[in-house]
Design a protein around this nucleic acid. Structure first.
Length: 220
DNA sequence: ATCCCGAGGG
DNA sequence: CCCTCTGGAT
């Protein structure tokens, strides 16, 4: 791997981000407050190419109509699409949600599997959703990589990957285990507030002295 | 590599 | 107007 920072710097970055971006990865809760893997899966599918606020609106509308996979399958596609419309891509997402519920019932008795292999076998669940469910709902030490995490990690030099999947693999190998689960949250906050896609705010960045991109930019 | 689809920001 | 937003299927 060409362009990565030393392991010790990687650990230091997570220490600083935990300090600068206070908060933790939240557990998905069901209607009665218990962890709810089914809602976690559906919410994650809805979140594709969508703002958090719109995802939340769509999820609320859908869960208002249906709480279980059986409930969802009794709905008409048009009702599902109408409910989740705020989050965009609603036709594709409607089809995926239906397939997901069918497979969940047919292959897992309606119970969401807790392993990556089991989750990835379900239609509509890719690596990112699988990792979200594993870490958010089942408390597994994996780091979910979305567009923010992917961008930030490769810019800093925590990882050196072209795809989010490879970023996830490299992070699991390089990041301290204690930082994996909550690291998702810290890196997202960092990506939203400081290390933005365009015009990152390096002046107020807590890790710019360890950042490869900043060093390269400063050298020009 | 491209399509699905749409709100919102700069 | 172009880009972004916690993707996945074909």
């Amino acid at each position: 791997m060409g362009r990565t920072i030393p392991e010790s710097d990687a650990a230091e970055i997570f220490v600083r981000l935990a300090e600068a971006m206070p908060g933790r990865t939240a557990n998905a809760k069901g209607p009665k407050g218990q962890p709810d893997a089914f809602r976690s899966c559906i919410s994650c599918m809805l979140s594709a190419q969508s703002l958090d606020r719109n995802t939340a609106k769509a999820a609320r509308a859908l869960f208002d109509l249906a709480q279980t996979p059986e409930d969802v399958l009794e709905l008409d596609d048009r009702d599902i699409a109408a409910a989740i419309k705020p989050c965009g891509l609603y036709n594709v997402k409607t089809r995926n949600i239906r397939k997901f519920c069918q497979a969940l019932l047919a292959e897992h008795g309606g119970l969401v599997p807790s392993t990556r292999k089991g989750l990835l076998g379900l239609p509509g669940i890719g690596r990112k959703c699988a990792d979200i469910v594993m870490s958010f709902t089942f408390g597994t030490d994996v780091i979910a990589v979305d567009t923010h995490v992917h961008r930030v990690c490769n810019r800093i030099g925590l990882t050196d990957a072209k795809t989010a999947d490879v970023t996830a693999q490299q992070l699991e190998a390089r990041a301290p285990k204690w930082a994996l689960r909550d690291g998702h949250f810290w890196l997202i906050q960092f990506g939203k507030k400081v290390c933005t896609a365009r015009a990152p705010k390096c002046e107020s960045c807590p890790v710019s002295d360890l950042c490869l991109w900043y060093a390269e930019r400063s050298a020009q």
